[in-house]
Design a protein around this nucleic acid. Sequence first.
RNA 1: GCCCGGGUGGUGGAAUGGUAGACACGCGAGACUUAAAAUCUCGUCUCCUUAUGGAGGUGUGGGUUCGAGUCCCACCCCGGGCACCA
Length: 802
Amino acid sequence: MRYQPSTTEKKWQERWTEQKLYQTNLSSKKPHYYNLVMFPYPSGDRLHVGHWYNFAPSDSFGRFMKMQGYEVFEPMGYDSFGLPAENFAIKTGVAPQESTARNIKEMIRQLKAVGAMYDWDRMVVTSDPEYYRWTQWIFLELYRRGLCYKKTAPVNWCPSCQTVLANEQVKEGLCDRCDTEVVQKDLAQWFFKITDYAEHLLDYDGLDWPNKTMLMQQNWIGKSQGITYTQKVKDLAMEFQSYDSVPQTFMAQTFAVIAPDHPRLAELIAGTEQEKDVLKFADKIKKKKVANKFNVEKEVEGIFTGRYIENPFGTGDLPIWVASFVIADYGSGVVNCSAHDERDFAFAKKYGIPLRPVMFPQDEKEAEKVRNLEYAYHHDPEAILTQPEQFNGRKWGEVREDILDFLEKKGMGKRTTNYKLRDWLISRQRFWGAPIPIVNCKKCGEVPVPPEALPVVLPLEGVDYKPKGKAPLASSPDFMNTSCPTCGGPAEREPDTMDTFVCSSWYYLRYLTPHNEEAAFDPKMVNNWLPVNMYIGGPEHACMHLLYARFIHKVLMEDPKAEPFKRLVHQGLITKDGAKMSKSKGNVVSPDEFVEKYGSDVFRMYLMFMGPFTDGGDWNDRGITGISRFVDKLWRLMNEASAENDTPAVARSLHAAIKKVGEDISSFHFNTALSTLMELTTLAQREGISAASKKLMIQLIAPMAPHFAEECWEALGQKESVFNSSWPTFDEKLLVVDEFELVVQVNGKVRARVMAPHGISKEEAIEKAAALPGVQKYLSEGTRLKDIYVPNKLVSFVVKPN
RNA sequence: GCCCGGGUGGUGGAAUGGUAGACACGCGAGACUUAAAAUCUCGUCUCCUUAUGGAGGUGUGGGUUCGAGUCCCACCCCGGGCACCA
């Protein structure tokens, strides 16, 4: 009889639910393992093969850990606030809460078909008041700790989404969500002070994360160290700070530049001849930037302000220019410029500003070019400095710290650290999100909602979702009109909602106690279960979710060293015809038909067999028959009469497989784990296999084919679930072969192979190899210089031809 | 431009510095069958050779080594991230 996936899978899913096999005992004495996968957004697209590619191996890993003796916690939930549901509402009139509920229901049906160990009793839905009440509480906590503030600032505005975006949500000047060009706008917005944690976020001590992800975060945080000069403006009672991260060539500085949108520009130029022109110029650049018409690569524009920085280094006054390339909110927005920076160099050349190089290549020809200002010479560790006098003749690569000391001692500047990271803009002018729990009172000003008055409920009726550049909630008088928590007088609510990344930055804490009405999370539980042992999700979250969650976690734990995710693994991307799957492209592949045709185990294994989990790949269904055949073959093997004993080859392969499959699952190489089991199956089919070894084989495949394994396990006479059995151990002694194929090389080329006993001595091996007729031919053609023996593998002769 | 990854058969991919192409798809041949399906066996990088056996071969060019897909240098191509951060 052939294996029947559909009936078998249904049977086991029902039995697992009945027996509550996957309800985690959170107070278990067993070692804990928190196995987490990034929760999905419940979109109308339903689950596609990409979700399966992500969720199924994550579950296989969790099942493996369960068999390793851990109490495994594997929760699932929905990141259900956000733009797609709202945009869908605008288009169709279906309320977001309705479409979201429907999508969640459909996704649960699909997720149950995966046959994962999800603890459904601990599901969280971020758009439930039960959940977002505590998201609001977190806002208040940050507010209380001075880590949350409202500020009017130039922010990223997406004209299509009609909302502001965080820096992290702007990709190459485009909105991360809809690819519309983002413009700059001055708006009063709410921020979380993530910059306070910049240094702590650079500490990855004890984390097992992909290097790439840590590097991306480091680059995003963008730490740099240098010096800040304080300098006087000539003929004006005004001082400027100027940050310099390459201080070695400070003596070359011949001019300074200020950002067009610098807050003190007007003050600087007041009363100068150039005032009008400068203002006009600054305005032009600002407008260009707002309209996103500024070509970063090609354009360098500027204008002289008429002001000078007074003789900062004893080399003369530095004319101050407004330059298009200066960023107002990095460093101080004012920069000293020299011949040893490419941008400064180009700017000076364009406007005829004098340059004075103070560092030269050792090669005289090249040095001449630098002297003649043929190019901007910089960042060469071997470059020789000529100024200041004390450093004459020293190498650029070696003077950095000494120069910093020198500048500090002379009182010309102070060591400074700067970060590219900006505060996290969390307010959104959209409807479908957690309302910001703030009340604006005419008398008391900005007043936080008292925690006991939470949640500030998102009104589900009487709101016009249409974006008008203003938060939709502002159009609901029922929502807006309230009383001030402080004075009791009439007041208005804050109409903005929070970025959904706030919701997702703490859900892993909520999973442990999803229905707790007393607190967002239970510190004792969190202490017992955090950090998450294994976190699986896409690499696209490196500088958003993963950074935000680390920040929020550190704040909530009141410990800047606390980390939410100990080990992190990114699944690869599954594309269709080379493109990311999306409804708009019409290339979404549904898993449903494959699950129906082949069963969820086969589908899951096929996804795992495609290649390494972290690689992803382009979807095609060629080859799924290979997995289907494998399952049938294994099923037949299990149903055949067992052999009395295993042959030595079967015993050895079985134990090698126990070792290999365990290692491969631990490192997410499911593809090679499966190929090992395929080879073992073929061998066992040929040589026969004992009943005891059949059981071991089923245990090995169980994490990857859970339903199938349970069915076989039961057929082999087992009463309990295979997932309550312990992962088999291998016998090291059995792994050793008595004979191996000795490879014989001459000058690196394979010339012969011969069977030899395992553990053969070097001398014996060489003697045996040299005696082979196919080898003697080559040995006799020259002089034997050296013999190499790699134990139990090969002999290599080095021969010099005569 | 800068910082990461990665380039291996017709395809997905495998290889602690030690037999390149495991496993699987596809394809070809055969067995079983009246036949088909299913299953099983054999073959399948290229070239020379009847076979045995040779020669070449992991993006390109160099290097280290007895031996390189793997290590080093330069370059080309693809993917991801950042991008006026002084």
